[in-house]
Design a protein around this nucleic acid. Structure first.
Length: 428
RNA sequence: GCGGCUAUGGUGUAGUGGUUAGCACAGGACUCUGUGGCAGUCCCAGCACGGGUUCGAAUCCCGUUAGCCGCCCCA
């Protein structure tokens, strides 16, 4: 190989064949959980008008300017590669008048997403997420169901130690008020905050709550908590969500410092974190919450919604390091068809098609001529049954079956090979 | 976007100014044109890119790119 001329763009990567099993496994679990809860799959385009996300996210964070993978088209439209799934799903809901369907409209999705970030381990510019969205229903039962589903997926994938962190961040009625109280609390202790948080005090005071700096930890320990300042509606809603979680016997903890960066989030927010055996938080796997203000931000009618999403690469990394199951490779063949000689190759390729018609997976190496090389290939694939089809067999219409574990060989009539092999692989 | 560290065959690595750039694994072929795993022989394949210093650079310097780590942000 000479010089490498092309490489992937910054922060993008190929999902290689060896990693496909993990993504396949996650997709399978997500699909079955979503199906059980009557969520239908939706696919939205990878490109949207940048406005879709600007409106949803708000202009005040530097997410739009700095973090979105946006550019102008030949027609001079400002578009962007979708950075998340909720806004497009809401856009689709409004665009297709899904409020005319029975509510809530329950949807799930899976696919690539893009953020213009500086790449680091587990942080890419193109990555994959799956998510659930339930739109059109304000009932707290929905919140708890979304949490339950997210939890189910991780459990089924094999994560053992999970904790659900929940909080309520109020709505447009009570949150502004709480923000004021919180800001004045932090202002009075400004000198005890880290420099970043002194800056956050101006543009995003809620974010101070999840600062990792130790000095800020001490300050926030005495900070007012939003659950003590929820309006009546939000309080009642949150209480009911927790009652459902109790009923489901889900392992949750109240985390008063859990917030979301975006304005459209209301009421319930949650994250599912993996913990060590003694319960110490290791990292977040899923996050979500209620977004009752999103539809209005789009200029739509007042429509509540609730959802959750998870980054797949992060889950894959953990699945690998924990050596979690990915399920059987379903189409991994147990039979190898080896051929020797021109006639046998021709007839063998035809036989291969007969196996395909019978839906029996068979491996082959028709490009190789030496029997030794073919057996070696079969051995590498850890295949048990090798059908040896040579000149003599081709002329006399039979085939040799070699058991690679024992080395014993038997002869089978050619017209019975498919049916006999069908029986053989059934038993295994 | 800011700061730091790194960059040698496909993978993992040796090589601190003069080496035919070494090794292991993986891949391919043969030993053996009808029998795999073992062994042996051979093949494939590399100093990220671009400048500079020097008689001479994988090695020193600068820039670019990418990865990693931290910050910002985190939907």
């Amino acid at each position: 190989m000479s010089k490498i001329k092309y490489q992937t763009l910054t922060g993008m990567h190929d999902v290689l064949p060896e990693d496909q099993i993990y993504f396949k496994r996650i997709n399978k679990v997500v699909e079955s959980v979503a199906g059980y809860y009557s969520f239908d799959k939706i696919e939205t385009p990878i490109l949207e008008f940048a406005e879709v996300f600007q409106k949803a996210i708000g202009d005040d964070t530097d997410i739009v300017g700095k973090e979105m993978y946006s550019f102008r088209t030949k027609g001079n439209d400002l578009v962007c590669l979708r950075p998340e799934g909720t806004a497009p799903v809401m856009r689709s809901y409004l665009e297709h008048g899904m409020h005319n369907l029975p509510q809530p409209v329950k949807l799930w999705y899976q696919g690539p997403f893009f953020r213009y970030e500086r790449p680091q381990a587990g942080r890419f510019r193109q990555f994959h997420q799956f998510g659930f969205e339930a739109i059109g229903d304000a009932n707290p039962a929905i919140d708890s169901q979304i949490i339950q589903m997210s939890y189910d997926v991780l459990k089924e994938l094999g994560f053992k130690h999970l904790t659900i962190e929940v909080n309520s961040i109020g709505d447009s009625e009570c949150r502004p008020y709480f923000k004021k109280i919180l800001t004045s609390y932090f202002k009075s202790r400004k000198s005890s905050l880290c420099t970043d948080c002194q800056r956050r005090l101006k543009d995003n005071p809620l974010r101070i709550l999840d600062c990792k700096e130790e000095k800020c930890q001490r300050v926030k320990a005495g900070a007012p908590q939003i659950i003590d300042h929820l309006c009546e509606k939000c309080h009642a809603h949150f209480k009911q969500v927790l009652e459902f979680l109790d009923e489901f016997e889900l392992p949750y903890t109240l985390n008063p410092y859990l917030v979301r960066g975006l304005d459209y989030y209301t009421k319930t927010v949650f994250e599912i974190v993996e913990t060590s055996e003694d319960g110490k938080a290791l990292g977040t796997l899923t996050g979500g919450g209620r977004y009752d203000n999103l539809s209005k931000a789009f200029g739509g009618r007042d429509t509540p919604g609730c959802g959750a999403a998870a980054g797949m690469e992060r889950i894959v990394t953990l699945m690998k390091s924990r050596e979690m199951k990915t399920g059987p490779k379903t189409d991994e063949p147990k039979i190898f068809l080896a051929q020797l000689g021109k006639l046998a190759k021709r007839k063998g390729m035809k036989l291969f098609e007969e196996f395909r018609d019978a839906k029996i997976p068979v491996a082959e190496s028709f490009s190789k001529d030496s029997l030794k090389a073919q057996l070696r290939a079969a051995n590498k694939m850890k295949i048990k049954w090798v059908l040896i089809f040579g000149q003599k067999e081709a002329l006399e219409d039979f085939i040799v079956l070699r058991d690679m574990d024992t080395g014993t060989q038997t002869e089978i009539k050619l017209n019975k090979v498919v049916s006999e092999m069908k029986e053989k692989i059934k038993k295994v």
